[in-house]
């Protein structure tokens, strides 16, 4: 058949054309560390500790998923590099079934610690963990392990930094209107926004906080328009949480509105207006979990990152000229939360 062979040639040409272009367009550098050879050999002391991470969004999202990736990289360095600690990741596993398959697969490959970094993974983890009693799992963010013996739980007390950010916002606002943008009312996003609102109210009784939940973790355009709405309502300080807030930060930048970040450092996006970021640093608790695994404890404990244990900390933008009294107030608030004299969410 004449037409048939002509088409075959066309498709082949198309394939070749794409083949010819692709290597030139993308540099041949792997974006992730090389994979560990899947082996069934039981792990001995001399072998590197192997960690696998599953995250719902991209590991460079400047938010939730990046916070765990950055932590593991820190832990890897602290343990002496890839010779002592191997790290693999499956990012963008927003489909929970796929995440479940990844968790199961890593567990069956004998990874020493499999981290399910997303509260929505709890259900599948509950089904998988009992099948691998010798493997340790970590699940965040959640308040407890819900009774599974080989699962560690971890969460961020994001309301603490939220409160500090709220105090700073209350001190910096001149219009007495502050805006905050969130995804859906759950998890560390809700904690952060609740803490933020409490902080603003505690810091400035006249200030009003407007909250906008845009119903999505990914809709950058709507997050941006939510920020525009805050601008329209007169806000001169804004905050927000989850990966879609990069859209809101852009609006803040264009309108000269101050931004208070959380989860990961957002300073690079808008050095002119980012005042401070609450950083999630999971590396401390991950080191602790690895220690426990070394001692033979595979789970059953819950961890929190807090301002007190240093898992949460405030990273100030060096390029932003924060008035000294506001900085002192913020430091005081951090101290108050640490020593318990301030109760963030009574």
């Amino acid at each position: 058949m004449n037409k048939l062979s002509k088409l075959a040639v066309m498709i082949l040409l198309l394939a070749l054309a794409v083949s010819a272009c692709a290597p030139a367009a993308t540099p041949a550098s792997p974006t992730a560390p090389p994979a560990a050879e899947p082996t069934d050999v039981p792990v001995e002391a001399a072998e590197p500790f192997r960690v696998a991470v599953v995250t719902p969004s991209a590991n460079n999202d400047l938010a939730f998923s990046q916070s765990i990736h950055d932590a593991i990289v820190l832990v890897q360095a602290a343990m002496g590099g890839p010779e002592n600690m191997q790290y693999v990741i499956s990012e963008s596993m927003f489909v929970v079934d796929d995440a479940g398959a990844a968790i199961r697969d890593y567990a069956s490959q004998g990874y020493d610690l499999v981290i399910a970094h997303g509260s929505q993974y709890g259900g599948v983890l509950q089904e998988i963990a009992p099948d691998f009693p010798d493997i340790s799992f970590a699940w965040g963010t959640t308040v407890d392990t819900f009774g599974i013996p080989n699962v560690f739980a971890y969460e961020a007390r994001s309301e603490e930094g939220g409160y500090v950010n709220g105090i700073i916002a209350a001190a910096l606002t001149e219009s007495n209107v502050v805006g905050v943008v969130g995804p859906i009312e759950t998890g560390d996003a809700k904690l952060y926004v609740d803490g933020f609102v409490a902080g603003v109210n505690a810091g400035n009784a006249d200030a009003q906080v407007n909250a906008n939940w845009i119903g999505s973790f990914g809709d950058v355009a709507l997050a941006s328009e939510a920020a525009q709405t805050h601008v329209g309502a007169g806000a001169d300080v804004m905050a927000g949480t989850a990966q879609m807030v990069v859209g809101a930060i852009g609006v803040a930048k264009d309108n000269g509105i101050l931004w208070l970040g959380t989860q990961a450092s957002q300073t690079a996006l808008a050095p002119e207006i980012v005042v401070v970021n609450q950083i999630y640093d999971w590396s401390g608790i991950i080191l602790e979990i690895i220690d426990l695994i070394g001692q033979g404890t595979l789970g059953g404990q819950s961890f929190e990152i807090t301002l007190e244990n240093g898992g949460l900390y405030m990273e100030y933008n060096p390029d932003f000229d924060l008035p000294a009294d506001v900085r002192a107030l913020a430091d005081e608030t951090v101290q108050g939360i640490i020593d318990g004299s301030i109760n963030v969410l009574p």
Partner: peptide, 18 residues
């Protein structure tokens, strides 16, 4: 219009069903 006018950022899947 999103990436270089209205939002001035690029993020994965930023159109989000638009």
């Amino acid at each position: 219009s999103l990436s270089i006018a209205l939002l001035n950022v690029f993020q994965q899947g930023m159109t989000s069903g638009l």
